[in-house]
């Protein structure tokens, strides 16, 4: 008994060591951004690793960002684009995944493969065609353009993950619903979706971060002042000759916040889903 316990203890220790190391590596840039965002310009360059002290503490970056009146609207744009795109990705991704996993129809696996291709081929390859399409439909410089592109970008992974999970939902349960007279929509929304909630949360997190951080499509499709997103907005502090590092770091620090809130919201769902499954 004892040796086995010791082995599993040392194994656990190793696993935790690896995880802690990974967490440190991932958190370090965030940490640097945060501490430097509240330091004076000189201190940022002289001692980037140093924690802010009484002399070097300076909120000038935040003051600049917040004075730049449009920043609130950039935030709002990012938020709208991200939330709506996630909602659409989850809705359409889940519906497609349900159809693929539940119904036998001609071309089922071909359709699945076609949708999965989107995971391997980056959507940016189609930028020129997308831009032409947006120009033709008059959607340039609208949030709608971004939402459409991000929905398309997120759906392949969503379909892939969700259809795997939906295959694990018991056929008997769905059949019981059919016998009780539930429509296929009711079976999807009332029986299947609640059971794959943890997978939905995973998909939401994976979808959200690239959208929030994206600079490419906002720059190309919606660079107008009214539709700027946070990442694009922060660019205005990066000049060709002079960069306002205080402001850039402050803007980036602020940009972390909403994404953190969304993440917490989803991960709570994720954990609740997992534990309710375990107790069942």
């Amino acid at each position: 008994m004892l040796p086995r316990a010791r082995i599993s203890f040392s194994r656990m220790a190793l696993v935790h060591l690896a995880l802690v190391a990974y967490a440190l590596v991932s958190l370090f840039p965030v940490f640097l951004t945060l501490i430097n965002s509240v330091k004076s310009r000189n201190a940022i360059f002289r001692n980037p690793m140093q924690l802010p002290t009484a002399e070097t503490f300076d909120l000038v970056g935040y003051a600049t960002v917040l004075k730049q009146g449009d920043f609130a609207s950039y935030f709002q744009n990012s938020m709208i684009v991200t939330v709506v795109a996630i909602a659409l990705v989850l809705l359409f991704g889940a519906m497609a995944a349900f159809a693929l996993s539940e119904y036998r129809f001609r071309g089922n696996s071909l359709m699945g493969l076609y949708l999965a291709l989107g995971i391997m081929i980056p959507i940016r390859l189609g930028t020129v065609a997308i831009l032409q399409g947006m120009v033709a439909t008059g959607l340039v410089n609208t949030l709608t353009a971004l939402i459409l592109v991000y929905t398309a970008q997120g759906i392949p992974l969503a379909v892939f993950i969700l259809s795997e999970f939906m295959r694990t939902v018991s056929d008997d349960l769905k059949n019981a619903g059919r016998i009780d007279g539930l429509s296929e929509y009711a079976i999807f929304f009332r029986l299947v979706l609640p059971l794959v909630r943890p997978a939905m949360a995973t998909v939401a997190v994976f979808t959200m971060i690239p959208i929030w951080n994206d600079l490419w499509f906002p720059l190309i499709l919606a660079p107008g002042e009214a539709t700027k997103t946070v990442t694009l907005g922060a660019q205005m502090f990066i000049g060709q000759f002079v960069t306002n590092w205080n402001a850039v770091l402050a803007a980036l620090s602020l940009a972390i916040l909403p994404v953190l809130v969304l993440y917490l919201a989803f991960s709570r769902q994720l954990i609740r889903g997992i534990t309710s499954g375990a107790v069942k």
Binding site: D172, A176, R178, P194, K280
Partner: peptide, 20 residues
């Protein structure tokens, strides 16, 4: 005729109760 209209009821091996 769809299952719900056939006047049948079914009991499944896995119970298949609605968890929520």
């Amino acid at each position: 005729v769809p299952p719900a209209k056939r006047g049948i009821a079914m009991v499944f091996q896995s119970y298949a109760l609605y968890p929520h």
